[in-house]
Design a binder for these strands. Structure first.
Lengths: 205, 205
DNA sequence: ACCTGAACACCGTTCAAGT
DNA sequence: ACCTGAACACCGTTCAAGT
């Protein structure tokens, strides 16, 4: 089984599956979602347009794998943001919200591809569904800890998390789609800050 | 042969532009975004695949027109919901949120098409941009009136509206993309209700 | 086992031509 | 003025064949 890398010419990276996912990410970053074509991804990975079918049933499956890769990175960023924040619910939620927004600003096409059901039926891809739910779990843990410290109102943490995640997701997506008038990227982070503060303190007078 | 509707055969509805938009809506409802092809829309409207180019520069322009049509209907629904609600900020925001969610549940593909920048650069279509901002204006009016009645905390209404709209949009889109576990449609409206109540009252203990 | 190249059906777009 | 049909380049998918 010990081969030299002469086989690299035939088998490429030895891991075409991940090479295709990586190529897809590059295309998303450089050209946006419109450029995410199966033939183009294959070209970028240095294989023929038929080669991806060795690893993915169809284009949808490749898109799902690229989305899943994005969710994994997003989750890592959220976890890191949470861990580095002061042990305080408002600080943790703000850090998570800012990391969410930062990902959306850095990888807008990838973010859209992850969340748009336009091209993907996520129920058909269990591992995609699973990783996209881990962000939810992270928030539940954060809120439950905040309740234990007496910082957060009582109630089912999962219900509160739906509200928090909706807020964070909503502001990120509206900024991404340019639905909210803004000048600079700094504004986006100020929007996250004020949105979370307002949610925390309430709108009622 | 000599009747007047022979001209209908040539010029169709006399308003091919709107017929194409309507055909697009039907396709979105029946087949989802994947079926929204220019040739298919033309087929559905009863014209050749080249006919749409008389009315739209390209596929993007047709998609923008379909999105604009959706924003107009959404705006009407939000306005009606607002007008029929009790004169009370929480009641009005809840009614608007429920109307937003109802539209997302009734027309999921249209909703996604309206908000996904996947296929449309909305800056290139000023009338689309304009109508999508009217919802913002409706919310600003609602919040400012609530402040005048002393129901809502003081502050720039536009800032508060970004928060409110983000919440409403976020919960609707997460439900749409099945990111939030749910059994029934009724659950979706309960999520809106609790999200707005929590935003109104605040999460802080 | 992994990949290629030809082939097929279909799409977005263009354009000369028809009424 | 409004629409058609052929043509073109390109895409997703399949498959017999190559190594």
């Amino acid at each position: 089984m010990t081969e030299t890398n002469t086989s690299q010419r035939n088998y490429h990276h030895g891991d075409l599956r991940n090479a295709l996912i990586e190529a897809g990410r590059v295309i998303l970053a450089e050209e946006g979602s419109a450029g995410l074509e199966l033939r183009k991804v294959a070209r970028r990975a240095g294989v023929s347009h038929a080669a991806p079918y060795r690893h993915f049933a169809d284009k949808q499956a490749l898109l799902a794998a690229i989305a899943e890769d994005g969710f994994r990175e997003l989750l890592n960023r959220l976890q890191t943001a949470h861990d580095q924040a002061e042990i305080n619910t408002l600080a943790q939620l703000t850090a998570i919200g800012q990391a969410y927004m930062a990902f959306a600003l850095e990888c807008p096409a990838h973010m859209r591809e992850m969340f748009s059901g336009l091209t993907i039926d996520r129920y058909a891809y269990p591992s995609l569904h699973a990783v996209s739910k881990e962000a939810f779990t992270l928030l539940v843990t954060t809120v439950a800890a905040g309740q234990a410290r007496g910082e957060v109102v009582s109630g089912n943490p999962a219900d509160l998390v739906v509200t928090i995640w909706s807020m964070i997701h909503g502001v990120a997506m509206l900024v991404l789609e340019r639905q909210i008038p803004m000048q600079a990227e700094r504004d986006a982070h100020q929007l996250v800050q004020s949105a979370i503060e307002q949610l925390y303190a309430g709108l009622r007078n």
